[in-house]
Design a protein around this nucleic acid. Structure first.
Length: 299
DNA sequence: TTCCAGGGTAACG
DNA sequence: CGTTACCATGGA
């Protein structure tokens, strides 16, 4: 890929790009970015323009963003840097989290295995909600299949050097679809209805990341989200976690978390909700990070 | 073939 | 309010 411009990013101390890459490369089924040669490539939309960027490590814990398209203007380069900063959750101060581990053997073990791992987010609210809805109650492999069909049917792409890079579909594109069209991709009736409802609300403007961000608390964001059909506690917390960057978000009903905890402690059966509440009470304000670190123990 | 998957809704008591 | 049946489809 031809490099048109480079931009340096200096992440905080408690960050290891290797961990981010490990997460990004956890599956071959992801259609919204590619990982190759320790570099992640992603197409994003900035000011209506498709911008293909890559992120890799440059020297000691520095990141370098490269642009593989027309040379973006200064303001767009800054927004791209901001995007990556948010995507990798580089704004979070992990020092208190790691301090908490000093007197906690469970956290110590988790952090030892994943030091420098940050929650890789989904900054786009429509994508975050849609992906959560798609993933409800089906195995992840099939969830990726559905997402890929959805993206490649309704999303835009850019082709560079024979590779296609995709954007997640916009609410505007999806809002006009019918349930049957999504069922054609093997969405269930309910999933199709839920995704369409979210798209319509976003297209109409009553639902937006900006509006929700202006609320006073993350719990208010959750209250607003669960008013929408198809969005329950798990989905709302998942989205608080990966889109709104709430470290206290806690998708406690998550099957992946249950399996991870079961395996981590070699339990005979999955932990109950009460047991999880009790356990996580040791990690106040870091529920999202502990959940994420547990997830990583599965792959 | 059976079990279950990064849940949610609606009906019921 | 807490519980339960049901949804719906593919993966392993």
């Amino acid at each position: 890929l031809k490099i048109k411009f480079e931009q340096l990013l200096i992440p905080p101390k408690e960050f290891r790009f290797k961990q981010t890459l490990g997460y990004l490369a956890r599956t071959n089924n992801e259609c919204l970015y590619k990982v190759k040669n320790e570099t992640v490539y992603k197409l994003i939309l900035l000011h209506e323009k498709k911008v293909l960027l890559s992120v890799s490590e440059a020297g000691e814990n520095k990141l370098i963003i490269r642009f593989h398209c027309v040379i973006p203007e200064e303001s767009i380069r800054m927004e791209a840097a901001q995007y990556v900063w948010d995507w990798f959750d580089l704004n979070r101060d992990l020092a208190p989290f790691y301090q908490l581990a000093e007197t906690d053997p469970i956290l110590q073990k988790l952090i030892e295995a994943h030091y420098g791992l940050r929650i890789v987010g989904i900054p786009d609210l429509f994508e975050a909600l849609s992906w959560a809805i798609i993933g409800q109650q089906i195995n992840l492999t099939f969830a990726y299949t559905l997402k890929t069909r959805f993206v490649e049917t309704y999303g835009e792409h850019m082709e560079v050097d024979g590779n296609k890079y995709w954007l997640f579909p916009t609410p505007a594109k999806i809002a006009g679809l019918s349930v049957d069209e999504l069922k054609g991709l093997q969405f269930s009736q309910k999933k199709a209805e839920y995704v369409l409802e979210v798209a319509r609300r976003m297209e109409e403007g009553s639902l937006s990341k900006k509006k929700l961000s202006q609320l006073k608390s993350f719990s208010q964001i959750e209250q607003e989200l669960v008013k929408i059909r198809g969005i329950g506690s798990w989905t709302a917390n998942y989205v608080r976690m990966i889109c709104f960057r709430d470290p206290t978000a806690f998708p406690i009903a998550d099957v992946g978390l249950h399996n991870a905890v079961k395996q981590f402690f070699r339990l005979d059966q999955k932990p109950s909700i009460e047991e999880l509440k009790k356990m996580f009470a040791n990690w106040p304000n870091w529920e999202a990070y502990v959940t994420y670190y547990f997830w990583r123990t599965l792959y």
